[in-house]
C-alpha cells in the first residue's frame, strides 16, 4: 500500500479562476458583489429598485445567474445597464469559470460596480468563490426569522444582509429583532439593512452603501 499526500482544496481550480476574475476586476477598478439568497427573496427586485434610485450616480453592470431563462436579465436591462445572463442548465450555483466568461462581455473600464446575482439557493453557492470583493445576502421576512441559524455558512461569510419585504411584516410570523439577532449571532460583522424593494422604505441607506462600495 502506498499513500500520496495531497492536502489541497478540492475546489482549487475554481479558487484559481476566481482569483483571476478578482485581479481583472481590480485592475479595472471595479468593485464586485456576489448577491445571494433563497429563491424568491427578492434579489432581482432589489436590483431593480436600486437601479431606479441610483440613476446615473453609479455606473453598474449586472451578471444574472439562473437555472433557466433570461427573464431576470430582461428585467434588469430595462434600466439601461449592461447585463449578461448566465444559464446554468440545472446547476444550483455559479462557478468562477462562467463568471470569467461573462466578464469578457462587459466593458469593465466603463463601470464602477458589478453585481453578480447568484442562483437562488442558500446552500450550494457558499463554497464557490466567484472573484467578488464581498458577499451580500438577501433574506425576506416571509422566510421567517431563523434562516441565519439554519444556513450559517451563507450568513457567516457575507459583509451585508438585506432584510427585504418588511412591508409584509404585519402579515407574517417573523420578528425583525429576532432575525437581526440571529444574523448577528452567526456574523457580528454584518451590516444589516431593513427595507422593502416594493415600497422603497429603507432603500436610501442601502443605496448609500452601494455608492460607498462603488467608490462614490
Amino acid at each position: 500500500m502506498s499513500v500520496i499526500t495531497i492536502e489541497r482544496r478540492v475546489l482549487e481550480k475554481n479558487d484559481e479562476l476566481a482569483q483571476l476574475n478578482r485581479r481583472n476586476l481590480g485592475l479595472a477598478g471595479v468593485h464586485c458583489l456576489n448577491l445571494l439568497s433563497s429563491p424568491g427573496a427578492g434579489k432581482t427586485a432589489l436590483l431593480e429598485a436600486s437601479l431606479s434610485r441610483l440613476g446615473d450616480s453609479l455606473r453598474l453592470a449586472v451578471i444574472e445567474g439562473d437555472v433557466q431563462t433570461d427573464l431576470d436579465a430582461q428585467r434588469v436591462a430595462r434600466y439601461g445597464v449592461p447585463v449578461v445572463q448566465l444559464v446554468t442548465n440545472g446547476a444550483c450555483h455559479l462557478e468562477a469559470r462562467l463568471v470569467g466568461d461573462a466578464l469578457r462581455e462587459i466593458d469593465l473600464r466603463s463601470i464602477d460596480l458589478l453585481v453578480i446575482e447568484n442562483v437562488g439557493n442558500l446552500v450550494c453557492p457558499a463554497g464557490f468563490d466567484l472573484g467578488e470583493n464581498e458577499k451580500v445576502v438577501v433574506a425576506s421576512v416571509t422566510e421567517g426569522d431563523d434562516k441565519p441559524l439554519k444556513y450559517p455558512a451563507m450568513f457567516r461569510n457575507a459583509s451585508a444582509l438585506v432584510i427585504n419585504k418588511i412591508d409584509l411584516l404585519p402579515y407574517v410570523p417573523c420578528d425583525l429583532g429576532t432575525l437581526r439577532a440571529n444574523a448577528l449571532a452567526v456574523n457580528p460583522g454584518l451590516e444589516v439593512f431593513e427595507l422593502s424593494s416594493l415600497t422603497g422604505v429603507g432603500l436610501d441607506a442601502w443605496c448609500a452603501w452601494l455608492l460607498r462600495h462603488g467608490g462614490k
Partner: peptide
C-alpha cells in the same frame, strides 16, 4: 450555528476549522 464563546459570551471569533473541503490523501494498493 451559535457563533458565541461558551466562556465569556463574546461574538468576535476567529474560525480555526470548519470550512475544509480538502483532498487529504490518496491510498493505492500494491
Amino acid at each position: 450555528s451559535l457563533f458565541q464563546c461558551p466562556d465569556c459570551g463574546g461574538g468576535a471569533l476567529a474560525l480555526l476549522s470548519g470550512n475544509e473541503l480538502d483532498l487529504q490523501e490518496i491510498v493505492l494498493a500494491d
